[in-house]
């Protein structure tokens, strides 16, 4: 089975196979023998690669995205199998003209909406004001277009990654 694994922004193709002795992995022409056993059901694993052992931590962040902890370092990882990879590519093609969902990068409290639903905005113009750790941050429109709707209201607490607003990109609007 083949996987496309992105670690800290770099993609690698990993091929896995099982034989009588366990897991055999191939990456960039090299072969490795792996072991991976869950320890506590909470994300701790006992792992080994070619006989070298590791205490591995895995935290799922949804949609194939993982946060992996290995020897104190943190890695942003995303794993896709061949089928998911193909459908993701298709998505990207179809998405270009469709509505765009604006998500917050940081968690915060919505202080104010700085535009109205139905309003036409330019790329970079502020959509709403988000307060986190006593700092106020304006969330800008990623592209020019019309605001279909806001998904949040002033006073609401939002987690990172939740939809804040949906925009329909203008035909000529450049993506920032």
């Amino acid at each position: 089975m083949k996987f496309t694994v992105e670690v800290n922004g770099r993609e690698r193709e990993v091929e896995l196979a099982a034989d009588g002795e366990g897991i055999l992995a191939r990456v960039e022409g090299r072969e490795h023998r792996l072991e991976l056993r869950p320890v506590d059901g909470l994300g701790q694993f006992a792992a080994s690669v070619d006989g070298r052992t590791f205490a591995l931590s895995v935290d799922g962040e949804g949609e194939g995205r993982l946060r992996i902890g290995l020897a104190g370092e943190g890695y942003a990882v995303s794993v896709k199998d061949e089928r998911q990879r193909a459908s993701r590519m298709a998505d990207r093609g179809a998405q270009a003209d469709g509505p765009r969902v604006v998500r917050g990068v940081i968690p915060g409290i919505v202080v104010a909406l700085l535009a109205r639903e139905g309003e036409e905005v330019e790329a970079g113009s502020p959509l709403l004001l988000l307060e986190a750790m006593k700092m106020q941050n304006e969330i800008p429109a990623p592209c020019g277009g019309r605001i279909e709707r806001f998904h949040v209201r002033p006073g609401e607490t939002v987690a990172a990654g939740v939809p804040l607003a949906t925009l329909t990109p203008a035909k000529s609007g450049g993506v920032r």
Partner: peptide
């Protein structure tokens, strides 16, 4: 600087994890 050798180990184990999840 990034550590490619370490990242490769992470990639291998991440794939094994994903396979296990499936």
């Amino acid at each position: 600087a990034a550590d490619p050798a370490r990242e490769e180990i992470v990639a291998l184990l991440a794939a094994a994890y994903a396979r296990g999840e499936r």
